[in-house]
Simulated assay, not measured.
Amino acid sequence: MEGVKVLSESSAVLKSVPSKFNFVNEPTALNSDSIPIIDFSLLTSGHPHQRSRFIQELGKACQEWGFFILVNHGIPENEMKAMFEAATEFFNMPAEEKLQYEPKNASDPIKCGNFNVTDTSNHTFTLWRDYLKLYVHPEFHCPLKPDSLREALLNYSERTRKLARALLEAISETLELEKGYMEETLNLESLFQLFAANWYPPCPQPDRAIGIPPHTDHGLLTFLIHNGVAGLQIQHNGDWFNVNSPQNSILVNTSDQLEIFSNGRCKSLMHRAVLNNEKTRISIVVANGPSPNAIVGPAQPLAARDGRASYLPMKYMEYIEKQLTKSQVNGKSILEQMMIQDEK
């Protein structure tokens, strides 16, 4: 299994992108200082006024942007650093050791490699990215090597799980749902957590390849941290924006299941990973979803408030499998396929 990392390192002067990676794109985007910055410590401060401000700012971020930068989140810097170190150790392992985790099918709980994508024009290309993906909750899966990965991942997945549940409880409050409604309806005690480490080496032609093409995420909330090299872009009101989140902050995006559950109030925005020709970018992603067996549809109180449900319900694991195997039908994403059209 020869990944992009090996390709970029073995070729002393790689002048052009091999044809299998060919994806013509325009990686430039606007810079914005409008992406909300949410201070988590306001929620936990014990001051009602600060808590109220947090709830208000969180609700606005989820409904207007679908992305926000979370600061003072309480996850120690050394535990975030440990994740990058363990991921780097994994990607530096010999190819033959990683070969055992090459995916047999899309839903394998441990998988690594690089990835082919077919676009709406039936053009198949390989992403300029090596990845490691693991299902870490409600069942924990982890490669045996490197030794540092298991402990770092157990710590980080537990921390992010608690953070996700606290944020989801607050988002439920912004939606004016009864306390515990989201927790019980989506069985968040058994929330599904997917961990991904992504390695994007320097690319000689950043406009002729892509790390990850435009997409939305399947869960409720996705957390992303990076090694200080920018590359994530989000689409907002038709324009692409660079997201330059500060070191040790967490970039959070509201995902498909939260848009469905909120009956469209929270937005699941398109985003993509673009490349550069100078530095390796590493991102650590934790996708937090409902329980695998939860059937997710619009929350009944919200659908009643709106006069109708705007999305069809679906079991969460079925949604994931659909997205992994056939994300586009007639040019529509899974999320778009779940939307109930207005009756004329």
Rank of each mutant, 00 (worst) to 15 (best):
T280V: 14
I55E: 12
D119Y: 02
N227C: 06
E169C: 07
G46I: 07
G46V: 04
N288A: 15
H47Y: 09
R281W: 05
E57Y: 02
A230V: 11
L258R: 03
P36I: 08
M338I: 01
A82W: 06
F195P: 03
I250C: 04
A230K: 14
R265V: 12
I55F: 02
T185R: 13
W240D: 01
G231V: 02
F23R: 11
N242S: 12
T160N: 13
A309G: 14
Q205A: 07
A82H: 06
L7W: 10
L7P: 02
E321K: 15
P213H: 02
R129F: 06
L167P: 09
F140P: 06
N253P: 08
H137T: 06
L258S: 02
V17W: 06
R272F: 05
H141V: 02
S52C: 08
I37R: 13
E336Q: 15
Q56K: 15
V252D: 01
L134H: 06
I295K: 11
W240I: 08
A29S: 11
L43H: 07
M93Q: 15
W199I: 05
E151P: 00
S172R: 00
H49I: 13
E321N: 15
N105D: 14
E9V: 00
P313Y: 08
Q100L: 13
Q341L: 14
Q341A: 14
H137Q: 15
R272A: 04
Q50P: 00
Y181F: 13
F54Y: 12
A12T: 11
W128H: 07
F21G: 08
T28G: 09
P204L: 08
H218Q: 11
E189F: 03
H73E: 07
A303I: 06
A106D: 08
A61E: 10
G307L: 01
P202K: 03
I334T: 13
Y181R: 10
M338E: 03
N187L: 10
I35V: 15
I171R: 01
H47Q: 14
S107M: 15
I75S: 05
E151I: 04
G307R: 03
Y200R: 07
V252T: 06
D33Q: 10
S121M: 14
L7K: 07
L302F: 05
